[in-house]
Amino acid sequence: MNFTLKIWRQENAKAKGRFKTYKVENISPDCSFLEMLDILNQQLIEDKIELPVDPIAFDHDCREGICGMCSLYINGRPHGPEQGTTVCQLHMRKFKDGDTITIEPWRAKAFPVIKDLMVDRSAFDKIIQEGGYISVSTGGVPDANAIPIPKEDADLAMDAAACIGCGACVAACKNASAMLFVAAKVSQFALLPQGKVEAEKRALAMVAKMDELGFGSCTNTYACEAECPKNISVENIARLNREYLKAKVKKADRKREGGGFG
């Protein structure tokens, strides 16, 4: 298969980027999208099509849809045209021979471009650092069945925990909102007894960080859910809204009683 690629090239965070057009030929339909870019990069290096030689920078790691590193905005959609798939799991057979494919980086104030198609997503790490964990006291490993959890809650928590933190929700959202990501991270804990203990503090702190880092807010367009490679549901956003409201109300209560709380 042959393709024309319009790829965003940007030397560094400060530089003004632009699109450059490349042609790739004889690509196998079973080639993955990232392999196709590897082939192009190999050509850039070996054939010295442009000088100085500068292969296209893009993020990737596991290439099996579990790490959340790959992040390309292809023809107007994060991770490309296939629903519920990361771009590393996308194959060229999903395109038509001769297609022109536009590849852009995630676009958000909170995700600045590092180089070409690679963006800095450490904003997500900062949100996690605000409470996306459980402060476990060390000790023996508890028996797996010591804390009974309803099957439905366990399933919902697992669905939320499927989030790989790739940032496609932010990329897809017209407001560059991180609500689906934060909602998944808050939900996976809020649904389980171990996570409930710190649920209030977590919801307040993670939302405050999300706002501070310059992500937009949710206006319920649900583009995030449609584009999420792990099909995380916007029901989680409603749960985050509930958790946040509950925490706000309780915090106000405690203030009135003179108790100390974050």
Binding site: K6, W8, F19, Y73, N75, G76, R77, T102, E104, R107, A108, K109, A110, A172, K174, N175, A176, S177, G214, F215, G216, A223, A226, E227
Partner: peptide
């Protein structure tokens, strides 16, 4: 303000 630089091809979700 959350997206100062937009996309060339926009979402068609």
């Amino acid at each position: 303000m959350a997206r100062p630089v937009g996309y060339a091809v926009s979402t068609k979700s």
